[in-house]
Design a protein around this nucleic acid. Structure first.
Lengths: 324, 324
DNA sequence: CTGAAAGCGCTAACAA
DNA sequence: TTGTTAGCGCTTTCAG
């Protein structure tokens, strides 16, 4: 079932059939209708491989994520998909399964499929460099959420420093630090986001204690244990991600402490797992809509402007650290 | 940068270059090394579009999910990706954004790209039928997790009835139903999984109350409110999904009830958000590894056996409904 | 406004 | 074992 069949059925050449189906050139309405009717009758669907091979481009944006089970990455993928959908492009997602080599293979595969552009949430601050370089050399490439230091690719990600400013402002306005002293529960992950959030925190609270682990619930629980075992009975816990905050919440409460009575808990991300927190989190909400739109803008422009895009987050206040 | 360039550089024909690069035919090691060296020097990468157009097949499995933010679907996608990765196929994921029309477009697009086979988690029990039919007519197609009644496509999904058997067994062995009577908090979603779990429950507890809402946290919270407002002070709440169980947990606890002291809570799924529950859930864990493997088997076999695959789940006991 | 024909990059018959 | 060549399905010059 090819365009040839459609053309034959409509009694025209393949060129005319193509023009009718793509609308690329003006033509007599009569013939166009004949072609469209023939296509409909035959149930014709264009072979996008043939088209792409000829046009030298696939209207597809490839997204490679480290792990789809990470709810923040999944949320980014979903939002990007929704923004991209009405634009004439299409988003295809591949997961690297946390492995730098698999990530590289995924990127190569996307490039080999002549994708229009590539969005990469790098697995590793250094290990993902080869993938990013390979992509940057051939297509418009965006590095998302985590910055690889040495890459030229446009970076799009939340303004983490501004997010920490919002938290500091909230804490200064509503917390008695003598009663609930502040602690940062962050991630030692070698990722730009982890580092920027830590630095942002330190700029405001240079003397506050800092605990570093991973971006997951378990680490939040461990951190809570550590604090309680060290004799803490109250505090303002600033987590570098909502998943960490969730871990903190669950362990604090299971060990008999109240939130926000004894401990306040403040998160970061505001999408994905956030609604699962109990009590609901005060958190910095990443501007995922703006992030998705920025990516589409970069891709559509086609001009890899070498400037970072850092949309500003917002503060969402919940009962885990109220504003009373 | 084409295979022509590689062939020229190595001083051979394109056919020889192709054979060296794909290893499709035996050839003299000497020439093969020359070709591979030339390819490496030039940084050649095969154009998968050209190859696929010629071979009439892309070694790609397409997965269309209703919504990547649904943690269970994200978990399925991730597991499938990991199972598929070493098999020579590649998994590409598209999200329908909850919209049946977008789902149809996604399926058509995958078909137009000559994907080897298609896995679809249908958006809607009836609305997704057109998508499934279109796919089934052309490629090996698997409907995953939710069954569309009238479709011929192979169905792969957890044995929900067996899952409910496990829950019933657990309840009968460890719960005093006079003290903690059982209630089902399910989903009225028109999906086979929702229905099968409800039916499974009813078979064991025909007289127990049933509340139906959506597969999300908010519904769990609402259901908890409803029960408490109706005067319930204890019970065994069987949720049709862990997200619902999470909502139940959070609301029960915020209104001062203890789990499992007052209310027991039992979930279903066992992947994705499950670790976020506090206390940890007793839940039916879906056999995602077996599900992913079954899909790969169907795809590899290429023979669309028209029989369903229903891997058996397991019970994971946690403190939300202990076995003491 | 329409048709003939070239050719995107690749592989697989067929020849040598 | 290697080379020549046709052609996968499509779009797009280039003529008419």
């Amino acid at each position: 079932m090819t365009i040839r069949d459609v053309a034959d059925r409509a009694g025209v050449s393949t060129a005319t059939a193509s023009r009718a189906l793509t609308g690329s050139r003006p033509m007599s309405p009569d013939l166009r209708d004949r072609v469209l009717a023939a296509a409909a009758e035959l149930g014709y669907r264009v072979n996008l491989l043939g088209r792409a091979l000829r046009q030298q481009r696939m209207s597809v944006i490839g997204l490679v994520v480290p792990d789809l089970e990470n709810p923040f990455f999944a949320a980014l993928a979903e939002h990007l998909s929704r923004v991209v959908e009405p634009s004439g492009y299409e988003l295809l997602v591949a997961s690297a399964g946390g492995d730098v080599d698999a990530e590289y293979r995924g990127v190569q595969s996307f490039l080999g499929r002549q994708m229009q552009s590539l969005v990469l949430i790098p697995c590793d601050e250094e290990g993902s460099r080869a993938s990013l370089d390979a992509a940057t050399a051939e297509v418009v490439t965006v590095q998302l959420d985590r910055r690889v230091a040495s890459s030229d690719a446009v970076y799009v990600g939340c303004d983490n420093a501004a997010g920490m400013d919002l938290i500091a402002e909230h804490v200064r306005a509503h917390v008695d630090l003598a009663v609930q002293p502040v602690v940062f529960v962050g991630a030692g992950t070698r990722s730009s986001s982890a580092r920027e959030r830590l630095e942002g925190f330190r700029r405001h609270f240079p003397d506050a204690p800092v605990l570093l682990g991973d971006f997951d619930v378990r680490w939040g629980q461990q951190a809570a244990d550590r604090l309680l075992d060290d004799g803490w009975t109250s505090g303002t816990l600033v987590a570098a991600a909502d998943v960490i905050a969730l871990g903190l919440l669950s362990r604090l409460q299971s060990r008999g402490f109240r939130v926000p009575g004894d401990f306040r808990v403040i998160g970061f991300d505001g999408v994905g797992v956030t609604p699962l927190a109990h009590p609901e989190l005060t958190t910095v909400r990443q501007p995922v809509e703006a992030i998705a739109q920025a990516i589409l803008d970069v891709v559509s422009a086609g001009t890899p402007e070498h400037s970072d895009v850092r949309p500003a987050p917002t503060l969402v206040v919940g009962p885990s650290s109220p504003a009373d």
